[in-house]
Structures are given as structure tokens and as C-alpha cells.
Design a binder for these strands. Structure first.
Lengths: 179, 179
DNA sequence: ATGGACATGTAAGCCGTTACATGATTTG
DNA sequence: CAAATCATGTAACGGCTTACATGTCCAT
């Protein structure tokens, strides 16, 4: 159900075609809620039927026609209603944690290599986030209400990635010493 | 696919009935990979067909009969093979982050209440983890190879929960001052 | 001419949740 | 007497992924 609301948030920020939404889910919003274009098109269709979004077909030259989706008043009302609802506690699903736990039954060197690989991923994400922070929120003490949400989410991402990197360092230090 | 491997890890540590596995997924292992009993029974059936686990029916007095599942040599081989495979980068899905981002379009007070509620959840989890750490790993500098994996996963959980709490504090401080 | 960006979809199938279903024993 | 624990399942439905499908324009 949360994909619907992620789309509503994204369209509330700016109207877009399904394709464009797909790009956003590859980048900004997608760092916290991923979705493929197939899924987005399906859900957009359902949301249009429900009146949460309005479609307008736009002809283009030199490019395929597109359908631009905009949030409706009903969509805004639904988004507002949803924010007033308590969020159920998120249960995390970490393949990596399961694999770590499999250490006594697995290939130690391969798992260590995996830890380094995970750390690399987290470093890349962290670099991307800090760069975005510097570009879009150069002065976090002076943000208007609209920008502050984006900043808070981004700073959560930075925190998460840094935490993951520290954890990987911890693992490598603990396991690396006994070689 | 990871549920299969989470079950293999759990059965490698100790054989169990489907019900017992369900309890483990409510507690220890389930903090990093959740699953309901319905799903567990279904997957166990499939895994038994594939020869990854062996079933033995056990009659009990005063209690319903049960089926005890044990990992097979094929299961151990599969688990080992899986650990040697690189883990794809985990994409996180955070309803909470989406809701935070909806701040400009939502109910500010309700969202702040939600942040406090999330913080409470994370505090409870952290308390549970630190207690488990103190009970099961009183001296983390002296752990054998079998115990070290459990400790590393648990310390990752502690890190994650502490990070989430800090994030919530940060959000409340940033948003709370402007009342 | 090959590949990437733009643009929108269908279909098959697995994964996962929620609800339903049954039944004995122990504990409060 | 009610509720919790032990124990195993089926059924329906929705979410999500992977693969397939099509077609134009632009740059190398």
C-alpha cells in the first residue's frame, strides 16, 4: 500500500509521466522506497480509476507521446489522511544479516569479501547522499517548511549508511584479526 | 529466496518443528528476517521435496504430534554455496521515510506523534538487544567461532536501533523548536 | 549501425499477508 | 470457564519481480 502513497508524495511535489516517476524511483524517492516501472504503471492505472490522480495525454515532437499524471484533491485528501495514521513498526529484512549468521556453516573468506562489497555499496550511497545534501541543502539551519522534510529524510539516509559502514568495519576488525 | 536460507541457518543451529521455527522467527532470527508460520510451513514442504531438509514425525503425549525438520547434507551444501554468492545491495523500504517526506502535505502534529511512536519502538528493540547481548555474550572479546556470528548480528541490530533513535531525536529537535 | 534515452505496457509466477479452520492440554 | 500454548495446515488475494514486447529519436 505504501507505493501508492510514495507516488502521491512524488506527484504532490511535481506532476509527472509514468516514465518520469520511474526515474525518480531510480533516484531520490527510490532510495527509501524502490519500484520498477511495470509496477508504477499498474498502480498509476488503479489510482486513476480511484480518482486519486488525473491523467492528461501530451503529444510530443521527436518523442513518444506521454501521459502526465497530477494529484487530485481526492489524492491530497488521501495523502493527508494517511499521514495521520500511525505507521506500523518497520520490520527489517536483511539478507546480509542472515548470511552473517550463516558464518559457522559457510565460506568464511567469501563472507568477508561480501562484507567488503557491502561496505563499498554503503560508501557509494553515503557519498551520493552527502553530495546531494551539499548541493540541495547547503545551509540546513535555514530551511523553509517544504524543504525541511527532504533534508530530514536525506539526513536519515546519511545516518543509516554511516551506521552500516561502521558495522562492516566492526565485522572486518573482529573477524580479520584471527587470520 | 532468503527465507529458505534463513530456515537452513536456523535448522543448522538446531533441528526444529515448523511451530518451533515460527517461534524463532518471532524472536531471535526474526529480528532480521520475519516470517509467519503459514509461510514457514509452505516453504518447509517445498524444501523437504527438494531434499534440503529431512522430516521425522514425532508422537507426543499430551500434545499434538509434530514433524521435526533437520538439515540434510544437501541442505548444508546449499547453505555453503549460498554464502559464497555475493549478496545484492539491500534496498531499504521505509514507510516512515515516505511519511516524513509527506510532511508538507500532511498533518504535522500527527507526524510528530508518529516519530515519537517510532522512537518508542526502536527503544524497546534496543533494550531487548542490549539485554540479549549481556545475557548471551557477556564477554565479546572471548567468543568461539560459532558464537561470534550471533554476536556480530546482534551488535548490528544494536547499532541500527541506536541510529534510528538518534534520527528520531534529530527530527523532533528540528521540527519541535518551531512551535 | 549500434546502443541509449524516451515512452508504455502485458503476462507469468513467486512471495507474503490475512483470514479461516481444527483440536488438545495447561494455566489463571 | 476462558485464554494461552502447542501444533499444522488451506485459501484468497495482493504485492512485486522477471521476462517479454514495441517503437522512435539521437548520438557515436
Amino acid at each position: 500500500m505504501a507505493l501508492e502513497h510514495a507516488i502521491l508524495v512524488s506527484l504532490a511535489e511535481r506532476s509527472a509521466s509514468g516514465y518520469e516517476l520511474g526515474r525518480r524511483f531510480d533516484a531520490s524517492i527510490g532510495h527509501f522506497w524502490s519500484a520498477t516501472h511495470q509496477q508504477i504503471y499498474k498502480v498509476l492505472g488503479r489510482m486513476a480509476d480511484a480518482g486519486l490522480v488525473a491523467v492528461q495525454e501530451v503529444e510530443q515532437e521527436g518523442r513518444p507521446d506521454k501521459k502526465v499524471y497530477a494529484i487530485t484533491d481526492d489524492g491530497r485528501a488521501e495523502l493527508r489522511r494517511w499521514t495521520a495514521e500511525p505507521t506500523p513498526p518497520e520490520r527489517l529484512r536483511s539478507t546480509f544479516a542472515v548470511k552473517l549468521r550463516a558464518l559457522p556453516f559457510g565460506d568464511r573468506d567469501a563472507i568477508l569479501a561480501d562484507v567488503r562489497r557491502q561496505r563499498d555499496h554503503h560508501r557509494e550511497k553515503l557519498a551520493y547522499y552527502t553530495e546531494s545534501a551539499a548541493r540541495f541543502y547547503p545551509d540546513p539551519t535555514a530551511l523553509d517548511d517544504d524543504a525541511i522534510a527532504g533534508w530530514l529524510v536525506l539526513s536519515g539516509g546519511i545516518r543509516t549508511e554511516q551506521g552500516a559502514i561502521d558495522w562492516c568495519d566492526d565485522i572486518l576488525q573482529t573477524l580479520g584479526e584471527e587470520r
